[in-house]
Design a protein around this nucleic acid. Sequence first.
DNA 1: CGGGCGATTGATTGCCTTCAAACGTGGTGG
DNA 2: CCACCACGTTTGAAGGCAATCAATCGCCCG
Lengths: 215, 215
Amino acid sequence: MTTPQTSADIIDLGPDLCLRGTRMRFERNAEIFGEEEPAEYIYRVVSGAVRTIRFSPDGRRQILAFHMPGDVFGVEIGDAHSCTAEAVSACDVVLVRRSLLQKAANEDVRAARRWLEMTGQNLLSAQDHTLILGHKGAGERVASFLLRFAERTAGGQHIDLPMSRADIADHLCLTIETVSRTLSELERQCAIALPTSRHVVMRSRSALMQLQAAA
Amino acid sequence: MTTPQTSADIIDLGPDLCLRGTRMRFERNAEIFGEEEPAEYIYRVVSGAVRTIRFSPDGRRQILAFHMPGDVFGVEIGDAHSCTAEAVSACDVVLVRRSLLQKAANEDVRAARRWLEMTGQNLLSAQDHTLILGHKGAGERVASFLLRFAERTAGGQHIDLPMSRADIADHLCLTIETVSRTLSELERQCAIALPTSRHVVMRSRSALMQLQAAA
DNA sequence: CGGGCGATTGATTGCCTTCAAACGTGGTGG
DNA sequence: CCACCACGTTTGAAGGCAATCAATCGCCCG
C-alpha cells in the first residue's frame, strides 16, 4: 500500500537522473551496513522500515532516523559510513554503487546539487531533532514523533508502527517505560487509541498538535 | 592572538579556490543574519565569536553552534537562512556573496565538493550534539563542551569563554543555574579552576575525559 | 500447553528545574 | 574619586519529572 510494485530498482535523483542498482532483502534486525565500514553503496527503502544508529561512548544507542519506503539513506560524504543501518522489519532495499553517484556528481551539476540537498535535508532533520530533545518533556516528544511519522506514511488517522517501544525510546532519548506510560496517558486523554501496541489511531490531531508545541 | 592580521578578506575553499568578500564588524549581540531571511552571503569569522540559533515553537532558543575565528558559517542549501546568527562578542566577519559560491560550484567540481563537505561536517556535528544531549547528565555535557571548545581554540590549558552562562545553557539544553553549579562542582573536584567566570583552566584533562564518557 | 519476548504498570530514587536571594563587577553619574 | 545601579553569576531550598528497579500481563510461536 505504501509503495507500488512498479517502483524499479533505481534511485531517482531528479529528471533524467536515475541510478540503477539491485534489490536486496533484509530480515528483521539484520544489519544493512555498519559504522566505519567503507560506504560502497547508497540505499533506498522499497518496503519495510530501516533505522540508522550511532552509539554513545558509553554504549547506549541513539536512533538517528527511521527510513520508510521511498527514503534514501546511507549517503555519506566521506568514504566510510558514519552510522549503522538495520532493518526494523523485514524489508526490501535497493542498493546503488556509490561510485555511480560520485560519477554522476562529477559530470552533472544537478546530481551534485541533489546530493547536497539530501545532506542538507538530513542536517535540518538532525537540528529539528535536537530542538525536540532539548527542552521538551516526554509527552511532547511522543506527540511530535507520532505526528511526524503520520505525515510521512500518509495513512490518515491510522499509524502502523513498524518499530518497538525500545526503538522509539532510543530515538526520543527516553526509556521504554516512559514511552509506554506516555502512550497510555495519551490514550487516557483520548488523544489517541491503541487497538494493539503497534497500531495507533489519532483520535484528536489537535490535542497532539497542542501537546507537541507545549513548553 | 587567535587570528593573524594577514588573513585576507576571502573564504578559502581549497587550493586555488578563494572567494573574495568584504569585512564587516558586528557589536556584541548584534544580529548578523536572521532565520528565513534570503541567504545572500556566506560568512567567515575573523575575530570574536558567533552563535547560530534556532527557536523552539514555544520560544526557547537553542544555540546550534559557536563559531570561532576561521570558521565558515551561514552556508545554506536553500535560498533562505535556516537559523539566526548573532555576535557573541564584538567580532569581525568576512561576507562573501553566495552567488560566487553558487557559480564556483557550477564551474568547479572541487568547489561543489567543498560545499558538500562543509554541510556534511555540520551534519556530523549536529548528530554528535544529539548524542551528547540524549543520554548525558549535566556534568558530562559541560565536560564535553569544555574539551571540545579547548580543542578548537588551541589555548592549551587555558580557555577564554567568549559566551555567557546563558549561551552555554542554551547550547547544552540546561539552565543557567545548572551550568554554574556544574562548573563550581568541577572546580571543587579540582578538574578545572575558575580564576574569573569567563576564564577556565583545565587542571585535569583526564578527569574531564572520564566525566565526558561517563554513563 | 509452555516458553520467551515485548509491553504495561507500580514504587522509589535521583537529578535537574524552578523559585528566590545574595554576591561581584563593570560602567555611569554625581 | 566614590556611590550607585545593572547585569551576569553564584548559591540555596523545594518541587517535578523521568530513570531505575521490580513485577505482571499479553501475545506469538514452538
